[in-house]
C-alpha cells in the first residue's frame, strides 16, 4: 500500500515539475527568437515590409486585447471551431459505431467518407459558403467536415481492435451485442477515440479559419485577411498569434480531458 502510494507520489512529482520547466523553455525560445528578429529587422537585414517587428506585433496584440477586437473575433472563431468539433465528435462517434458494428453500413458509407477526406476541404469551403451562407454556420460546417474523419477513423479502428480475450469472456457470460459494445468495446476503444479527438481539436481551428478566409465579416481569419489587404502586417500577425493560442489551449484542454478519462492508462 505504502509502496504504491509513494510510487504514485514520485510519479506525480515527476509529471508535475516538468510542466513549468517546459513552459519556461518554450517561452525562452520564443523571446530569444523575437529578440534576434527584432535586431535583424532594425539592422535592416530583413525588410520590415515582409516581416513586422516583434515589438510592433506585441503592441498590436496588446492593443487588440485592450480594445476588445481580438477577444470579439477570437470568440467568434472559437465558437465556430468548438461547435464544429462538438458536432463532428457526436456525428463521428455515432457513424463509427454503425460502421464498426454493421458490415452493410461499412461497405456503403466508408468509401464515401474516404472520398470526402481525399478531397481538399479548402476546395469544399466555397461550396459550403453557398449552402450555409456567409455567417457562422458555413464556418462551423467546414470545421465539422475537417474534424469528422479523424474522429471517425480512430474510433472505428479502436472498436475493431478489441482484445479477442475480452470478447470471449463477455460471450461466455452471455453478454448481448449491445452490452459487448458499451461495456467492452467502447471503453477499450477510448484511447483511440482520444487520439482522434486530439487531432480534431487542432483541425477544428484550421477549419474555422479556412471558412473565414473564403468569406466572412468576423473572426480571426477575417481579421488576418483584412489586415493583410491593408498591409498592416503587425495586426495580421497579432491575429495569427491569437489563433495559435486558441488552438494550443484547446489542444491541451483535450489532453487534460484525455488524461482524466483514460485514468487506467497511467
Amino acid at each position: 500500500m505504502n509502496d504504491i502510494a509513494s510510487r504514485r507520489g514520485t510519479r506525480w512529482a515527476s509529471q508535475r515539475i516538468p510542466v513549468p520547466k517546459t513552459l519556461l523553455s518554450v517561452v525562452g525560445c520564443l523571446v530569444l527568437a523575437a529578440v534576434v528578429l527584432e535586431i535583424a529587422i532594425r539592422a535592416g537585414a530583413i525588410s520590415a515590409y515582409l516581416v513586422p517587428r516583434p515589438s510592433d506585433v506585441l503592441v498590436a496584440f496588446v492593443d487588440g486585447l485592450a480594445s476588445g477586437v481580438l477577444l470579439y473575433h477570437g470568440g467568434i472563431t472559437a465558437f465556430e471551431a468548438l461547435t464544429g468539433f462538438a458536432i463532428a465528435t457526436l456525428l463521428g462517434l455515432t457513424l463509427a459505431v454503425f460502421v464498426a458494428e454493421i458490415r452493410l453500413v461499412e461497405s456503403a458509407v466508408y468509401p464515401w467518407m474516404v472520398a470526402v477526406q481525399a478531397t481538399p476541404k479548402i476546395a469544399l469551403a466555397p461550396l459550403l459558403i453557398i449552402w450555409f451562407g456567409f455567417g457562422l454556420s458555413s464556418k462551423i460546417a467546414v470545421a465539422t467536415i475537417i474534424c469528422l474523419f479523424p474522429v471517425m477513423v480512430t474510433t472505428i479502428t479502436g472498436l475493431k481492435s478489441t482484445n479477442a480475450g475480452f470478447l470471449d469472456l463477455a460471450c461466455s457470460m452471455g453478454a448481448s451485442r449491445w452490452q459487448i459494445l458499451w461495456k467492452i468495446k467502447f471503453p477499450a476503444a477510448l484511447p483511440h477515440v482520444f487520439a482522434g479527438l486530439s487531432l480534431a481539436s487542432v483541425f477544428a481551428f484550421t477549419g474555422a479559419i479556412v471558412g473565414e478566409f473564403v468569406g466572412a465579416s468576423a473572426g480571426l481569419g477575417h481579421l488576418v485577411i483584412d489586415a493583410n489587404s491593408k498591409i498592416m502586417l503587425a495586426e495580421a500577425f497579432a491575429a495569427l498569434i491569437a489563433v495559435a493560442l486558441l488552438g494550443l489551449t484547446f489542444f491541451y484542454a483535450m489532453q487534460a480531458a484525455s488524461h482524466r478519462v483514460l485514468y487506467w492508462k497511467h
Binding site: G174, A188, W264
Partner: peptide
C-alpha cells in the same frame, strides 16, 4: 449461467477496479 470460464489470460478489464471486474458477470446478467 451454470458454467463459468477462466482463460489463460486473466482478461481483466483494465478500466475496472478489482471489485468491478469481479462484479462484471452480475452486471451482464
Amino acid at each position: 449461467p451454470a458454467v463459468a470460464v477462466a482463460f489463460q489470460d486473466a482478461n481483466l478489464l483494465p478500466w475496472r477496479t478489482v471489485l468491478d471486474n469481479i462484479l462484471l458477470p452480475i452486471e451482464i446478467r
